[in-house]
């Protein structure tokens, strides 16, 4: 299993899966500044890998069901197999139980990796949402650079925990190429772990409907390389 998975971890293969036309969908390509299948961080990469594994599994199961339907129309089908034991116990009970046990174990293990754990090199930021602007805060950073609006600065290659809150209704913090989304719920602080592999600009969105300004309600994450980051911390950037 591990070998199998590490096979899929190989980014080149994932990319080829994407382009080789598994489905007509892939014609549109995987790239895009909001694409979850063009990951740029460890969390998004894990999830993209889960997706490809599940897609292959789902395609196989779908093909199996369609095959069984097709055979039902062939006169040569083996009627002896049309028993409760084969269809209900075998295909109905045992088959999904095995598949789901494997999937659940895989999903839970993968999910575990994505959770924030207290590691020393983690950088902390706060993200406060309100209709329709994000305010990001950097506790413990030099005076004068505590707050930025609609742009979140993070160091590249280093895990960042984002403490997500809201000033009004429910919003959701989502940077598709870096990680999954987490809601900003009134009265709660939710913490999301993100990390960018490389310096760059990554588009972010609020993905919980919030009324008339929802469509345009996005933000940008700028991941800085080591030098830039020192400059940002020192207050020399922007």
């Amino acid at each position: 299993m591990r070998l199998f998975l590490s096979f899929f971890m190989h980014r080149g293969l994932v990319f080829r899966l994407c382009v080789l036309g598994l489905t007509p969908l892939a014609l549109a390509g995987c790239a895009g500044e909001l694409s979850t299948v063009d990951p740029a961080g460890p969390a998004a990469r894990t999830i993209a890998q889960i997706w490809w594994v599940m897609l292959i599994g789902a395609a196989a199961i779908f093909a199996l069901v369609m095959g069984l339907l097709f055979v039902a129309y062939r006169p040569a089908r083996n009627l002896a197999h049309a028993s409760e034991r084969v269809f209900l116990v075998g295909l109905g009970l045992a088959f999904p139980m095995i598949v789901l046990t494997a999937l659940l174990g895989y999903g839970l293990a993968a999910g575990e990796q994505l959770l924030p754990k207290g590691e020393p090199e983690v950088f902390y930021v706060t993200a406060d949402a309100g209709r329709w602007a994000w305010r990001f805060g950097y506790p413990g950073v030099a005076e004068g650079y505590r707050v930025s609006e609609d742009v979140l600065h993070i160091p590249a290659g280093r895990p960042v925990d984002v403490a997500i809150t809201t000033r009004d209704v429910i919003h959701s913090f989502w940077v598709p190429r870096l990680a999954g989304k987490l809601d900003a719920v009134p009265g709660y602080v939710n913490v999301l772990r993100i990390e960018a592999d490389a310096p760059g600009r990554y588009a972010g969105l609020s993905s919980e409907f919030s009324g008339p300004g929802y469509t345009q309600f996005g933000f940008e994450v700028i991941a800085h390389g080591a030098e830039d980051w020192q400059a940002f911390l020192a207050g020399e950037l922007e």
Binding site: T36, A43, A44, T46, I47, I50, W51, M54, A58, I61, F62, V65, M66, L69, L100, L103, L104, G107, L108, A110, G111, L114, S172, P176, A179, G180, K181, L182, S207, E208, F209
Partner: peptide, 29 residues
């Protein structure tokens, strides 16, 4: 027959979104 072809896909994507990390990406999309 159209039900089979359609609902099986819906069921399989349903199992996908039951996997929490994947749901974190596709929720509300």
């Amino acid at each position: 027959l159209a039900f089979f072809a359609t609902f099986v896909i819906g069921g399989l994507t349903g199992v996908m979104v039951a996997v929490v990390p994947f749901d974190w990406q596709v929720h509300d999309t």
